[in-house]
Design a protein around this nucleic acid. Structure first.
Length: 974
RNA sequence: GCCGGCGUAGCCCAACGGCAGAGGCACGGGCCUUAGGAGCCCGCCAGUGUGGGUUCGAAUCCCACCGCCGGCACCA
């Protein structure tokens, strides 16, 4: 019993209690009748006669993590939006697939397990149940048969299966697609593809063959530097590390460490992931974020031969401190996007971690070395060691706070291949090892960072692009003719780039290249609650993929769920995953084709992103035990539809709704997996998500007292002077997220208790456009409730419960009936348009408008005409489905309205007989007139002038100009 | 610092370059009521962040600035 029901209300009023009864009744009926079951073309979800409508629609919400804390009203915003959209399309007769499962692996359940000893599965399943209770109460039309969780053994079996497919593939750069590794082996064996050293395949030892193959797999073991987070006890992907160099979960320090880890070769797909963005109907913002993350830049690699050490101010060729005693001087390779400026490269800079530093460091400082270059050290080696130590101690944050350029001279020079001049080599932390080659040619004339460094270290600055007249800046990065650049002089930037690249290639000094910021995906985590790797190692530590017949590899029970975590600042600690402690599971006897042998299982688990890379495919065929998804079902729901979406249509789900926070991580990984599956022929779509829509967030005010402690937001009052107080004390208002800890959380359950789920749905959808964030206002919810209550009252007598509907037909020849028909058909057209283009807020406004018209016109009469009541109920159904079903049923229909009908607007009633034109004089509305709709522009013009004259707005002479906008207005210019 | 988005009534939001208002909240008045109300009816409120420009006409298009939000940030 809720507060709306206190007092003397009519027995059949639409109150929260009645809404609750109606909602429970219809939710039960939908479940019993399988109302939202969407048939598949084939398999266990196919109808008996095997026919499905060709017109299908696949609506998808981003995979939720079943949090233990319960939902607040912000969570279901997108779910309600997709449900309204899905219900609208279902009513138009489409086969609509809409369901929701759970991305249920992850840290919270594991941390809880570590604290309490409760198995993560127990926690996870309890959380899923709780989540389902909450979302089912909202009346979301999900196909319940298709619910899955990534933690289901039957699901992660297929996650492991896909992993193995990726593992057993390589990227053929010629064909620009992934191919099975067996084809690579066959090409080597047949001699079509030469081996690296030219020997025939058969002459190589098995280990040599294996090394060549393994180095080309899309999944590989790498010794490269990884992001090690001691506080979490695990390594992290680049995408999971913030710009400040901390973990995005927990904000703990992350260190670069060389560790042997599984990587996925997402970089092989960099070009396609980038180029195919153009084929997607996604928000530009998200596309831009992915483009930036992939970070493709065209440029050149240029090799600078290391020459003698020397003072740049006093070069002495043949100096004794050369490489003569240490063998051939190596080349330093740099990456640049501006090879055209190479004549202005006056020094080189290596990242402090660059592997060649020790090799090239000179034993002594050259004579007359600039004191700014040595950092006061006795030798270059000392200076470098000192600099590296300092650099390692500075946090990423500190490095970013001060952009002052620091660095030290290596004592060695290189030769600019373009000018032939010697230029000094520095190390400096403004050059990053992780990008390009970890070395740059510094061109202060055209790069501000290099300019700053050159000024700090007294290095020469040579402009090689002429700045425009009057340019008073420092480095000039714009367009202009080349200068001081020998044969490039006079060329524009693009021409010069091309010319110098040709020259570099001809002279063996470099070549044009493409560079990406995207790194391969670190795919292993040293955690418990994730998918185990279907990989074992032999005694020699060589990895073997398990055959598909040995899947799934199930997670073992362990005594202790947590990885060994460390002092968050202990950079030298080593990962120790929890599965390594499950010795019975880790050590296994298997026959992998050459007899029973002992192997060790891989103790890592997959990152949480793995499960969400392909869930949209499993929804399509959740019970299939032969394949992750039948290709026929995939083609039906997700295949390209060029007739509908154009010749470049990559396919994918028809609408994918979620927050913008997954712009890079999940959306990039899922696209990558999908493309691999496409290349290998398992799916017909080239992209998983054809259209993406970012919903906004529901935000909320939070209040803190003088101590900074949050106080319950619902108890805060606004004073007449604009201050906010809580129990008499002034509090400070802040605006942001809704959350339990901020004490401003409102749950969907309490809203359903107070008003009903339909009211909550209508309110959330009417607050504003779906993609805009907006503040929650509990006090506004009543408006949505009043609307439903009025609508109910227009159809049902509140005192008797009898239907208040009359069956007399509306007569277009009766003016009042005609007015009703016009109001109705205007609403039908407008509401349908709005639903179809996801303008749910204006759709609701138009429904309210129609309902207000009905209230005014029929509120005190015998009843509402059926021919108005029925379309109103049908149009309401997507947003307030329970109420609409109840009314539809009371109107005498025994079938659910979930599959239609949907009212059609009749053109006849969208045209008026007469139109009112505003008449503007010089752009300002001065008067109005009414003319027949059929009036020609000339007649409208004449009528307007007559009207303006009679109102003495204009004189008798002809105005300068008269603009007639048919159907809109007339503007008279005098 | 760079890039993007957004500024309309006290609040949330509408408005193909064409009458600034569809809808809701709040507020005021009235009705119903012993009373209260989240019931019913009626009403009030801005000229669109600021300054320019284009146009017969600008919330809408262009430029600059201000404010808020988001993304990126030594990526060579």
């Amino acid at each position: 019993m809720s507060s709306t029901d206190t007092g003397d209300v009519p027995p059949h009023r639409y109150t929260a209690t009645l809404a609750g009864q109606i909602e429970r009744r219809w939710q039960r009926r939908w479940a019993e009748q399988g109302t939202f079951y969407a048939p598949n073309p084939v398999g266990s979800l196919a109808p008996a006669d095997g026919t499905v409508p060709d017109d299908k629609f696949y609506v998808l919400d981003m995979f939720p993590y079943p949090s233990g804390t319960g939902l607040h009203v912000g969570h279901p915003l997108g779910y309600i939006g997709t449900d309204v959209f899905a219900r609208y399309h279902r009513m138009t007769g489409r086969n609509v697939l809409h369901t929701m499962g759970f991305d249920a692996f992850g840290l919270p359940a594991e941390l809880y397990a570590a604290q309490t000893g409760t198995h993560p599965r127990t926690t996870t399943e309890a959380n899923i149940d709780r989540y389902l209770v909450q979302i089912r109460r909202l009346g979301l039309g999900h196909d319940e048969r298709r619910r899955i969780a990534t933690t289901d053994v039957d699901y992660y079996r297929w996650t492991q299966w896909i992993f193995l497919k990726i593992y057993r593939s390589w990227y053929d750069t010629e064909a620009r697609r992934a191919r099975p590794i067996s084809e690579l082996e066959a090409e080597y064996a047949a001699g079509i593809r030469p081996t690296p050293d030219g020997r025939t395949w058969a002459r190589l030892t098995p280990d040599e063959q294996r090394k060549i193959i393994d180095s080309q797999r899309l999944v590989y073991l790498s010794e490269a530097p990884v992001n090690w987070c001691p506080g979490l006890g695990t390594v992290l992907a680049n995408e999971e590390v913030t710009a400040e160099g901390r973990s995005d979960r927990g904000n703990l320090p992350v260190f670069r460490r060389n560790l042997r880890q599984w990587m996925m070769r997402i970089t092989a797909y960099a070009d396609r992931l980038l180029d195919d963005l153009d084929r997607l109907d996604w928000p530009e913002k998200v596309k831009t974020m992915q483009r930036n993350w992939i970070g493709r830049s065209h440029g050149a690699r240029i090799r600078f031969p290391v020459g003698s050490s020397s003072s740049i101010t006093n070069p002495r060729v043949g100096d004794t401190q050369t490489f003569g005693d240490r063998g051939t001087p190596p080349d330093i390779e740099v990456f640049t996007t501006r090879p055209d400026t190479v004549f202005g490269a006056t020094y080189l800079v290596l990242a402090p971690e660059h592997p060649m530093i020790s090799e090239i460091t000179a034993p002594q400082w050259p004579a007359e070395v600039d004191s700014r270059w040595t950092a006061g050290a006795a030798t270059p080696a000392d200076a470098i060691a000192q600099y590296r130590r300092a650099a390692a101690q500075r946090s990423e944050l500190e490095r970013q706070e001060s952009r002052d350029k620091t660095g030290v001279f290596t004592g060695t020079c290189a030769i600019n291949p373009a000018t032939g001049r010697q230029i000094p080599i520095f190390i400096a932390d403004y050059v990053l090892m992780g990008y390009g080659t970890g070395a740059i040619m510094a061109v202060p004339g055209q790069d501000q960072r290099d300019w700053d460094f050159a000024e700090a270290f007294g290095l020469p600055i040579v402009r090689t692009v002429a700045p425009p007249e009057g340019f008073d800046g420092q480095a000039y990065t714009g367009e202009g003719p080349a200068i001081n650049s020998s044969f490039l002089d006079g060329l524009g930037v693009d021409e010069a780039k091309k010319a110098i690249t040709d020259w570099l290639e001809a002279n063996g000094a470099g070549e044009g290249t493409v560079q990406y910021k995207l790194r391969d995906w670190l795919f292993a985590r040293q955690r418990y609650w994730g998918e185990p790797f279907p990989i074992v190692y032999d005694q020699a530590g060589r990895p073997y993929p398990l055959p598909e017949s040995m899947l799934p590899v199930e997670l073992p029970d362990v005594a202790d769920y947590s990885p060994t975590t460390f002092d968050p600042d202990d950079a030298d600690s080593e990962p120790s995953p929890p599965l390594a402690k499950a010795t019975d599971w880790i050590n296994v006897e298997l026959d992998l084709g050459d007899g029973l042998k002992t192997y060790r299982r891989d103790a890592n688990v997959m990152p949480q992103w793995a499960g969400s890379c392909w869930y949209q495919l499993r929804y399509l065929d959740p019970y299939n035990s032969e394949a992750f998804c039948d290709p026929i079902n995939e083609r039906y729901w997700m295949g390209p539809r060029p007739v509908l979406h154009g010749p470049d249509d990559p396919g994918g789900v028809d609408l994918y709704v979620g927050g913008v926070e997954h712009a890079v991580l999940h959306l990039l990984y899922a696209r990558f997996w999908h493309k691999v599956l496409y290349d290998l022929g398992y799916v017909s779509s080239e992209e998983p998500y054809r259209r993406l829509y970012n919903q906004g967030y529901i935000q909320a005010y939070a209040y803190t007292d003088a101590r900074g402690v949050y106080v319950p937001a619902e108890e805060v009052v606004e004073e007449p002077d604009g201050r906010y107080t809580w129990r008499g004390q002034q509090v400070n208002r802040e605006y942001g997220k809704m959350g339990k800890s901020l004490r401003n959380s409102v749950s969907p359950d309490e809203m359903s208790d107070t008003y009903g789920a339909d009211t909550l749905r209508v309110y959330e959808m009417s607050m504003g456009p779906l993609d805009v964030s907006r503040p929650w206002a509990t006090k506004d919810v009543v408006g949505a409730h009043r609307f439903l209550q009025r609508l109910w009252r227009n159809l049902v007598d509140e005192n008797t419960g009898e239907l208040r509907v009359v069956d007399t037909e509306l007569d277009p020849n009766v003016p009042s009936d005609l007015e009703t028909l016009r109001a109705l058909h205007r609403a039908i057209g407008g509401v349908r348009d709005d639903y179809a283009s996801l303008r749910l807020n204006t759709a609701i406004a138009k429904l309210i408008e129609l309902n207000n018209y009905i209230t005014k016109t029929y509120g005190s009469s015998r009843g509402t005409p059926r021919s108005v009541a029925e379309p109103l109920v049908l149009l309401l159904a997507p947003v307030a489905p329970h109420l609409a079903e109840e009314l539809w049923s009371r109107l005498g229909h025994d079938r659910s309205l979930a599959h239609g009908p949907i009212p059609e607007a009749d053109e006849r009633y969208l045209i008026e007989d007469t139109l009112e034109y505003p008449i503007q004089i010089n752009g300002k509305v001065r008067t109005r007139m009414t003319v027949p709709t059929s009036a020609s522009p000339d007649e409208v013009r004449a009528a307007a002038l007559a009207q303006a004259r009679s109102a003495t707005l204009i004189a008798d002479k002809e105005p300068r100009k008269v603009i007639v906008v048919p159907g809109r207005l007339v503007n008279v210019v005098v």
